[in-house]
C-alpha cells in the first residue's frame, strides 16, 4: 500500500492508493496506461485554468472528475485531446504524445460534450453516420456500428426522425450515440446529465456502466457527487485548476468519516461569532452563508452546548438546527470551505 499526500493550502489529504493501482503506475511499458498527464499549465489571460495538474488513468477505469463550475475540468478535457494548447507539462494518451499524434489518438477517443452536439437538420441515423464516417468507418462496418449505437441508446426505432422532434433525454442519448459509434477505447463525458430529467439521467448513467463493462475506459466530469459515487471507480477533485483529492470512494470517505456537519440557521449575521466558534474544541472550520452557519466538527466531540452558548452571548436567535455525519459531498466543503455548487 502506498500513501499519496496532496497539499491544498493549509490542509493535507492523505490517501491510500490500492496495490493494483500502484502496480499499474509502475508498468514501464505503459500497456495499461490510457492517460498520463504531467504538471500541465493552461492560462486564459490572468486566470490559471490548469495549475500544474497531474493525473493518470488506467484501462478499465471510470474516473470521476469533480469540481465546481470554472474549476478547470473542461479545459483539462480540451487539453487532453490537443484541442487547446498548454503552456507547459506533458500529455500522453495511449502512451503517445498528444501534440504529435493528435489525429491518431482522436480516432480512439469519443467525446460527449456538455452541450448537445447534434445537427437538428439531419435525422438521427444521418447524425450518427456522419460522425461515424469522420471517425473513419465505411461500408458494412459503418452500417453495423451505426445500427448498434442507435440500438444501444434505444433510438433505432426513431432513426429516421429529426432531433427537433426528440425530447431532451432522447437528444442526450443521440449525443452519446454519435460519440460511441466508432467503439472508442476512451470516452470523455463532460457533464452529460446537466438539465436532464431523472429518468434520462439514470439511463445515461447505466449506459456509461455498460460501455465500461464492454471495454471502454471513461472520464466522467460532473459537479454532482452522487452521480460520481454511483458509477466511478476513482474520483479526482479539482479546484482552481489543481487536483485537491484523488482516490477511490472508500479512500475519500475515510478522510471525512470522523467529521460531522452542523448547520444552524440564525436570525442575523454576526461575523464575530464565526471566529469565536472556530476556537471551540473539536471545530475544524466554520462558514456563514445566507444566515446559515455551517460548522465542520470532529465527530463524537460534545461541543454543541458550547456553540449554542456562544450564539446566545452574541444575541443570535436560533431558527433551525441540523446535525449530520459528513458525506462524500461534504469533502469539497472540508477541503475548500465551499460547496461544489457554490
Amino acid at each position: 500500500m502506498t500513501f499519496v499526500i496532496i497539499d491544498y493550502g493549509k490542509m493535507s489529504l492523505v490517501l491510500a492508493i490500492n496495490s493494483l493501482y500502484t502496480n499499474n503506475v509502475k508498468n514501464k511499458r505503459g500497456e495499461n496506461m490510457i492517460v498520463q498527464v504531467r504538471s500541465i499549465v493552461k492560462r486564459y489571460g490572468n486566470v490559471l485554468a490548469n495549475d500544474h495538474l497531474s493525473l493518470e488513468l488506467h484501462s478499465g477505469e471510470i474516473l470521476g472528475l469533480l469540481g465546481p463550475n470554472g474549476a478547470g475540468k473542461t479545459t483539462f478535457l480540451n487539453a487532453l485531446l490537443g484541442n487547446t494548447s498548454i503552456e507547459s507539462g506533458e500529455i500522453k494518451v495511449f502512451g503517445k504524445d498528444i501534440e504529435k499524434f493528435a489525429l491518431k489518438i482522436k480516432k480512439d477517443v469519443g467525446v460527449v460534450p456538455q452541450d448537445l452536439a447534434i445537427y437538428e437538420d439531419l435525422t438521427a441515423i444521418e447524425n450518427v453516420t456522419f460522425f461515424g464516417e469522420l471517425y473513419g468507418l465505411s461500408g458494412k462496418d459503418l452500417k453495423i456500428k451505426v445500427k448498434e449505437s442507435l440500438e444501444f441508446t434505444n433510438l433505432y426505432e426513431r432513426r429516421n426522425e429529426f432531433p427537433k422532434k426528440f425530447s431532451g433525454g432522447m437528444k442526450r442519448r443521440l449525443n452519446i450515440a454519435c460519440s460511441i459509434v466508432h467503439r472508442p477505447k476512451l470516452i470523455l463525458f463532460d457533464e452529460p446529465t446537466v438539465g436532464v430529467d431523472p429518468q434520462s439521467r439514470n439511463h445515461i448513467l447505466q449506459a456509461i456502466k455498460t460501455l465500461n463493462k464492454e471495454g471502454s475506459t471513461i472520464i466522467y466530469t460532473s459537479h454532482y457527487m452522487e452521480e460520481v459515487e454511483e458509477i466511478c471507480s476513482r474520483i479526482v477533485i479539482i479546484d482552481k485548476g489543481k487536483v485537491i483529492a484523488n482516490g477511490t470512494i472508500s479512500e475519500l470517505e475515510s478522510f471525512i468519516m470522523d467529521e460531522q456537519i452542523i448547520n444552524i440557521q440564525i436570525n442575523h449575521v454576526n461575523y464575530n461569532i464565526v471566529e469565536k466558534i472556530k476556537k471551540i474544541y473539536g471545530v475544524k472550520d466554520c462558514h456563514i452563508k445566507n444566515q446559515v452557519l455551517t460548522i465542520i466538527s470532529k465527530y463524537g466531540v460534545q461541543n454543541i452546548t458550547q456553540i449554542l452558548n456562544n450564539l446566545n452571548q452574541e444575541n443570535c436567535k436560533i431558527i433551525n438546527i441540523n446535525m449530520e455525519k459528513a458525506h462524500l459531498e461534504d469533502l469539497f466543503l472540508t477541503l475548500t470551505g465551499r460547496t461544489l455548487r457554490d
Binding site: 480540451n78 485531446l81 484541442n83 489525429l103 491518431k104 482522436k106 480516432k107 477517443v109 467525446v111 460534450p113 456538455q114 452541450d115 448537445l116 452536439a117 447534434i118 445537427y119 460522425f131 469522420l134 471517425y135 473513419g136 449525443n175 454519435c178 460519440s179 463532460d190
Partner: peptide, 15 residues
Amino acid sequence: YQKGLSVRIKSLPVH
C-alpha cells in the same frame, strides 16, 4: 452557435 458541436468537431480525427 451550438457550443457542443464546436467541441465535438474539434475532437474528431479531421484536419
